[in-house]
């Protein structure tokens, strides 16, 4: 095994009294594509959001490229706490891209400006250079003809593809997708999934939370079933989706396929 590019160790997350993640560990190798499935409210989003520190982990460590993030401090009570500097978190987030269910595009910027924004402000790239990168990413998602449109003028599927291009423009080492097609009309789901598959073909490292089990099956190198705040079952798509061993996984899949035809 090579050294993992992302390593999560004993991750816990609580919201007040609610213990959502109860000790999750995961090593991600470069080029792996991991699909995370699970019931609503099981903590899939929370797990993904802890990885790029949209949520602060309550406990546990995250390492990128072998470097543990944050610094350990002893509290007066003798407990250990991990502190994170804003600078470090910004650097991490620039290296770990994220695509949201609700797109979260900037409505006051055009498509091109949305994709250039991170390059110009965060990476301090020259405008011409940023434009070039943005253009090539927008071409990849099939939107090079809508550069000057505002997000509100685009369909949901187009907006999500802009969001993918915006994440890609930063040249992230890992991309996180949180149900990227869940807020789309059914006929628009395909175009977004196709864009994601192009990234898979490029060998990018990706973590995807999804309810599209069919896509997960074809897309992923590894499938994780999250339940009760832990990884209940982990394996290849074949193992988890076709021949699950755990009772809970079986029930989840049965409920999921109830109305399949």
């Amino acid at each position: 095994m090579n050294k993992p590019i992302l390593s999560v160790t004993d991750l816990h997350k609580s919201f007040g009294p609610q213990h959502v993640l109860k000790g999750i560990s995961l090593d991600v190798q470069a080029g792996e594509r991991i699909a995370i499935i699970g019931g609503s409210g099981s903590g899939k989003s929370t797990f993904l959001r802890c990885i790029n520190f949209m949520e602060m982990p309550s406990q546990g460590r995250i390492a990128l490229d072998g470097h543990s993030l944050g610094s350990v401090k002893q509290t007066r009570a003798g407990e250990t706490r991990v502190n994170y500097a804003e600078r470090e978190l910004c650097q991490v987030r620039a290296r770990v891209g994220m695509v949201f269910q609700q797109f979260n595009l900037f409505p006051h910027m055009t498509v091109l400006e949305n994709v250039m924004e991170g390059l110009v402000t965060v990476k301090r790239a020259a405008k011409t250079e940023a434009r070039e990168v943005a253009l090539s990413q927008l071409t990849k998602v099939g939107l090079s003809n809508r550069l000057d449109a505002y997000p509100s003028q685009l369909s949901g599927g187009q907006q999500q593809r802009v969001a993918i291009a915006r994440a890609l423009a930063m040249e992230p080492e890992i991309i996180l997708f949180d149900e990227p097609t869940s807020s789309l009309d059914p006929e628009l789901v395909g175009e977004v999934l196709r864009s994601i598959r192009v990234l898979a073909d490029e060998g990018r490292t990706m973590l995807l939370v999804t309810h599209e089990l069919g896509f997960a099956y074809h897309f992923a190198t590894k499938v994780i079933f999250l339940a009760d705040g832990v990884f209940h079952e982990v394996g290849t798509p074949e193992e988890v989706l076709k021949e699950p061993k755990q009772q809970k996984t079986k029930e989840f899949l049965r409920r999921f396929n109830e109305f399949a035809f």
């Binding site: 790029n52 987030r93 949201f100 797109f103 965060v122 994440a167």
Partner: peptide, 16 residues
């Protein structure tokens, strides 16, 4: 909240 997160997700600091 999505606007803050969209900005943070590409590495922007709070002030940026």
């Amino acid at each position: 909240r999505g606007q803050w997160e969209g900005a943070k997700a590409i590495g922007m600091s709070q002030s940026m």
